[in-house]
Design a protein around this nucleic acid. Structure first.
Lengths: 341, 341
DNA sequence: GTTAGCACTCAACACCATCGAGTGCTAACG
DNA sequence: CGTTAGCACTCGATGGTGTTGAGTGCTAAC
């Protein structure tokens, strides 16, 4: 059996309705809809076919039909008619972004809020991978005996800092000149490639071997331990408004998942492309989120590094709108964050 | 009518029980408890008295009694016998703190997690007020045409940074020397007192007036806009496990409150003392949290500045344990964060 | 091929009886 | 006189029952 025009039409109507109401959809409801000129009986026959084909399911015998994950997949791939955001909605969203006092983290935080406000789902933004950013400046600042703060400024204007221990015969001026040297040597190197640069420096440097070794370690640690703080979540309470989370236990599980940045990172894991990716239900790799859908997009910072922004919601998500919003915000974020270059 | 010995005893037993079970407590339950040698009938009489005095309430005629806020107040003020944490519990908590790779924000984040894990409530930590910290170092870093990043390192090792615009005739070396000058002039000044220092500098400085003016503005803005990022919340999903939040709407409201850092800041607002403060129910100033209790303590960073750590939970909170944990963590945090000095 | 009609199913809802935890009161007890 | 046993009473919780109505599948007529 194949899907003909009419089956498409009916399936679409069912999905649209279910996305709105979260209630099983009956044949009468569809029949009454404008654009569908068939009686409930005809609809019922078609629905029966669609169920057999795996696009619909019945919670129980005398209930309406509910779209399956397969149906959502078909929907986002073929049925969905994309809607544009209205100009003043775009305007409003953009405003909130540039509003925030310009700092990278602030911008990202604001973006997360805008996303969750605009979609009423939970939003997640992952900051760009450090490794791909270029170093702009390195600065050592004394903070105590034998202790200094090492500050690394990247091309995206993102600042990372770590405490390191230093030999005790160094004073502020020494640190100053070391910083200067480090900056000269490392400027415009990607963080990833820093190891070689250091190797060279260690060979040349008569002095301060110990310090440089320390610094290298720090940078590397920073690179591999993808920092917790770099996952930002907005509107975590939004999902509680939906009937699929009326059960407190489900809600708690969901929130617990959100608290593990590690899991979030995994679930937003993307191949390199800039395309919007849609994972419906079990398509994502995290069992706890198997009844959620996750839509994600990329944003660019500087030349080659990018971050991820996404929306987590029930499988009966308003894909249409979410995609529009993510698409727009991805571009907006890229714009705003690239002004630093 | 006054509270005699026996009324105290009974009230305490009721509160203890209710804290454990969240169920209205009946006379039989109390009578069976070890340490109480009276029959249910006697207990009932006493309970009746306690109700008249406003310490107990009955949800409905044939239910047991529930402690009132007044009762909790009495409990924390007089009835509670303080328990110590076991040494290895202390050990474990402390471990998690120093574990984290030494950064201030990382430590605070870890502390929030430890707090919520140890208490099973929601924890909140507010970073120390910037204004009270001393400046250690100021650094301007060029990031683009006419744009620089201004980084301020405080005595606590906390780094703050903001983007500022600069005159376009300045190159990296100029910024370097300006940074040096700024650091020299401002080092060891509290952030609050920076205004005068700047005034002087503006008078003297032949050049760079525009830049200095910009920088001053930035610092001041930073001071007054108590930064969002400085409120950190742990275990927000913990409260959903308690029967008082079985209703999804209540849960949602609660979570929505947590998302507003502004409100959190207000609710944790403390007078200067280092004492542990307990706000029961409506004693806190935020109507949305009127059925919560909030216990908070201070931790010290450096010489004179301190931050706040707190626990938010239902009024029938395990005050005893929460107080012990907060007390310990306050000290531990102070210790860890003062190592930077 | 489409649709009206009809019997059938089943969750949701309201209603009701029962149960039991807990109370207040009274009278008896040491 | 304080304490306690006994008892009638209250009322939420629980579980069973009947009704309702949305929705289906099937059949027969258009």
């Amino acid at each position: 059996m194949q899907l003909d025009e009419r089956k498409f039409l009916i399936l679409q109507a069912i999905i649209d309705d279910y996305i709105m109401t979260a209630m099983p959809v009956g044949s009468r409801t569809i029949s009454r809809k404008s654009g569908v000129g068939y009686s409930p009986a005809t609809i019922r026959n078609e629905m029966s076919d669609l169920e057999e084909l795996g696009y619909l399911a019945q919670p129980h015998t005398s209930a309406g039909r509910v779209p399956s994950n397969k149906a959502y997949r078909l929907y986002v791939d073929h049925l969905m008619k994309s809607v544009k955001l209205s100009p003043d909605e775009r305007e409003r969203m953009h405003e909130h972004l540039v509003d925030k006092s310009k700092r990278v983290e602030g911008v990202i935080r604001a973006a997360a809020n805008v996303l969750s406000d605009a979609t009423k789902y939970t939003s997640v933004i992952v900051a760009p991978k450090l490794g791909t950013l270029k170093i702009k400046h390195v600065q050592l600042v004394p903070v105590a005996e034998r202790t200094a703060l090492m500050i690394i400024v990247t091309s995206a204007g993102i600042v990372k800092d770590t405490v390191i221990t230093i030999p005790d015969n160094l004073d502020a001026d020494d640190l100053y000149s070391i910083s200067r040297m480090l900056t000269q040597k490392l400027a415009d190197q990607p963080l990833e490639g820093v190891r070689q640069a250091f190797a060279e420096m260690l060979r040349d440097a008569s002095d301060n071997r110990r310090l440089l070794g320390d610094a290298l370690q720090v940078i590397e640690k920073r690179l591999e331990s993808e920092d917790q703080a770099d996952v930002i979540i907005g509107g975590s309470s939004n999902l509680l408004g939906y009937p699929e989370y009326a059960d407190v236990n489900k809600a708690r599980n969901f929130l617990a998942v959100l608290e593990s940045k590690e899991t979030i990172r995994r679930v937003l894991n993307r191949d390199g492309s800039m395309e919007i990716s849609i994972r419906i239900g079990p398509e994502n790799q995290v069992p706890e989120l198997n009844d959620c859908s996750i839509v994600s997009a990329s944003y660019r910072v500087g030349d080659h590094s990018n971050g991820t922004l996404g929306i987590i919601g029930p499988t009966r998500m308003n894909y249409n709108r979410v995609i529009s919003v993510l698409d727009f915000m991805g571009r907006a974020l890229s714009d705003v964050l690239s002004e630093y270059r």
